[in-house]
């Protein structure tokens, strides 16, 4: 119990710090994260550069914060788009049933049958490198599980007597969907969205690491880990370690918050909390 609350507090603290850093740092310190200083390349972490500098002398702390900013933007926007698409498809399939359900779910199967990193690479390859193709690529590959979750939830809600009562009371299809079915699936869809954020961040990093995501000059955690590979072999650990930590710690924190939310959604847990 105490362990769970500590984890929840730590996750909340990290997420709050990350959001604050990402919003405030670029405003408070108008420094150029792309400024090259060849005289100061590959400095060890120290007073002037707390995280050290990379192979062309750019400050790693500043680039980590800017990279996190890009990662969060990609993660949040892609998760939102994927959730909206997944909820719409799942709700339609579950509510309409019959051939519409079969057609939509075969579409989901079709997308799932392709390894999703491969599909993601295909999508980014269609466009010039940038943030939006990466968001599109992550969204296109991540709405599938939400569609399945929402459809299953709608199917289970649809047979409840209160839906019968609504139909008998004269409610239209639209009203049943909007008033009774959607509010019932929103908590599940919201949880799926939050759980998707870390996944989306990892995907962005993976695409950038493969050199397919953002342009290489742009600060992105994946780009930074990629360009640090050479210096790592030469014994310079910091250009790899710090961006790596910036990928791992915030995603674990978001996942920790989502885990606490999931426990709340479980009715048995919830009744424990309210008693």
């Amino acid at each position: 119990m105490g362990n769970r609350i500590t984890r929840l507090r730590a996750s909340g603290l990290v997420v709050a710090a990350v959001v604050l850093a990402v919003l405030v740092v670029p405003l408070a310190f108008p420094l150029d994260e792309q400024a090259v200083d060849l005289a100061a390349k590959l400095r060890q972490p120290g007073l002037s550069h707390p995280f050290g500098t990379d192979e062309v002398g750019r400050d790693l702390l500043l680039r980590c914060v800017y990279g996190l900013r890009v990662s969060l933007l990609v993660g949040v926007v892609a998760a939102l788009v994927a959730t909206v698409v997944g909820t719409a498809v799942g709700a339609l399939a579950g509510a309409l049933g019959g051939w519409a359900d079969r057609a939509l779910m075969r579409l989901v199967d079709l997308f799932s049958s392709v390894p999703h990193l491969l599909l993601g690479i295909f999508v980014v390859a269609l466009f010039r490198p940038g943030v939006w193709p990466v968001i599109a690529s992550v969204a296109v590959t991540h709405w599938l599980s939400t569609a399945r979750i929402v459809r299953a939830e709608v199917l289970s809600l649809r047979t409840r007597p209160y839906i019968d009562a609504a139909v008998s009371g004269g409610a239209s299809r639209w009203r049943v969907a909007v008033r009774h079915l959607l509010p019932g699936v929103l908590p599940q869809a919201g949880l799926a969205a939050v759980l998707m954020i870390p996944h989306a961040i990892w995907h962005e990093s993976a695409l950038s690491f493969l050199g397919l995501g953002l342009p290489t000059h742009q600060a992105s955690l994946g780009n930074m880990v990629n360009s640090a590979r050479g210096s790592l072999l030469a014994g310079d650990w910091w250009p790899t370690l710090f961006p790596g930590l910036f990928i791992i710690v915030p995603t674990l924190a978001v996942a920790g918050l989502a885990g606490a939310w999931r426990e709340r959604l479980d009715p048995r847990r919830r009744s424990e909390l309210t008693l």
Binding site: R160, P161, Y162, D164, A165, A166, V167, S168, G169, G170, S172, R179, H180
Partner: peptide
């Protein structure tokens, strides 16, 4: 049609299941 549906008032066995 709505008039036909609302001509019937239905009460089910389990109130918990029949209330949103």
């Amino acid at each position: 049609p709505r008039e036909q549906r609302t001509a019937f008032g239905v009460v089910f066995q389990q109130p918990r299941q029949s209330a949103d």
